[in-house]
Amino acid sequence: MTRLPRPTPHELDAAQRVLYHAIADGPRANGPRLFSLTDGEGRLNGPFNAMLHAPAVGSALQELGSAIRYRTTLSDRVREMAILIVAAHWDSAFERYAHEPIGRAAGLTEAELTAIRSGGVPELSDPAEAAAVDLVAAMVATGDAGDALFDHAVSLNGTEAVVELTTLVGYYATLALQLRVFRVGQPGDPS
Rank of each mutant, 00 (worst) to 15 (best):
E160T: 13
E110V: 08
V86E: 00
L44Q: 01
A111R: 12
G120N: 06
L177Y: 15
R69S: 10
P7R: 01
Q186W: 03
L124W: 10
R71D: 13
R180I: 05
R28V: 00
F182Q: 08
A153L: 03
E41M: 13
Q178W: 15
T38L: 10
E123C: 14
L34C: 13
A50L: 07
L175C: 05
L44M: 03
E100L: 08
H21R: 13
G26L: 03
P101M: 07
P9K: 03
L44G: 04
A82K: 06
E164K: 07
A82F: 01
V136C: 02
T2P: 07
L19G: 05
L4Y: 08
Y172K: 00
P127M: 05
T167R: 11
L84K: 06
L37R: 06
R28Y: 12
A87H: 00
R183L: 14
P9G: 03
E110Y: 06
D76N: 14
V78A: 12
P187M: 01
L135G: 04
L61I: 10
L108P: 09
G103D: 08
G65C: 00
A82W: 04
S36P: 13
A145Y: 01
S66Q: 14
E123D: 15
D39Y: 02
P27W: 01
L4I: 08
V86P: 00
A105R: 10
E100I: 11
V169L: 09
A98Y: 06
G58C: 03
V78H: 06
A153S: 04
A24N: 10
P127A: 04
D76R: 15
L168T: 01
L108I: 03
L64A: 13
L156E: 06
L179T: 01
R6W: 12
A138F: 04
Y20P: 00
E63M: 15
A15E: 15
L74F: 04
V184N: 04
A88K: 04
H152N: 13
G185R: 03
H53V: 06
S66C: 11
L84C: 04
V136R: 03
V78M: 09
A56R: 12
T159K: 12
A60L: 09
T166V: 08
G185K: 03
A82R: 05
P187T: 00
L61E: 13
P55M: 07
V86W: 00
E123T: 15
A111P: 09
G65V: 00
V133K: 07
